[in-house]
Amino acid sequence: MKNILIIAKKELKTYFTNPIGYVFAILLLVVSIWIFFANFFINNQSSLSSLWEMVIFLFSLFIPAISMTSIADEKKYGTWELLLTLPLSETELVLGKFLGLLFYVVTVLLLYIPITITLLFIGKPDIGILLGGFLSTIFLSASYIACGVFASSLTSQSVVAFLISLVFLLLNNFFGQEFFLSRLPLFLKNIFSYLSLSWHANQFSWGIVSLIDVVFFLSWTIIFLILTILSLKSRNK
């Protein structure tokens, strides 16, 4: 556990001492808040659901961008050879990377708290829906990060890692959209919606917290972390 935290701390430090970490966070906030407030007074509802829907979509761009270097750069600069010859296992390295990224994303999500407080002052929002929105975004982030770290472990080129996870997450997001699902026969609609992370996250953001959704997010995260560990171990072949 100690090694995992050392790696996580190092990752977190990299994002907070690098201008890119701030640029991504500010861009995400500005775009999501701008689009949210563009319709907020027209909708006349004290709810953050539309903000979370926007954040879920933007995360499929934002998370590949911040996770692309996580392992690809270690490979590119040879530091993974140093790390994996220290008393540190592949599992500790991957979990450290994952946790560092998750802490960073949760910190960015905390920047939405002022909007939540504003909403509490100007209306009477459903607290369950507000918390569900935060929770779904954290679960979704964990799943997206696991996917991004896996893509980053496949190559030493961070741009390639970005494109792999971007295409994968955008497609996954697309499969959960109603305009796509409504064109499918029922059994295919059920399969595609079940496999879509954004579809599960939207259930949360409407205040419906089910065990199936939680298990889905956790399974997705664990599967991709295991794939990342296997990808690192495949250097022997």
């Binding site: 090694n3 050392i6 190092k10 990299t14 001492t17 690098n18 600069y77 040879g78 530091t79 050879e81 140093l82 790390l83 010859t85 220290l86 008393p87 540190l88």
Partner: peptide
């Protein structure tokens, strides 16, 4: 072990880098 590629974290200072490696060495 000193690998051929001379791996270092360029954005770190030597003291930060050495402290990071030292912590991982226990």
């Amino acid at each position: 072990y000193l690998p051929e590629s001379n791996p270092l974290y360029m954005s770190f200072t030597p003291v930060e880098y050495l402290s990071f490696v030292a912590r991982l060495k226990g």
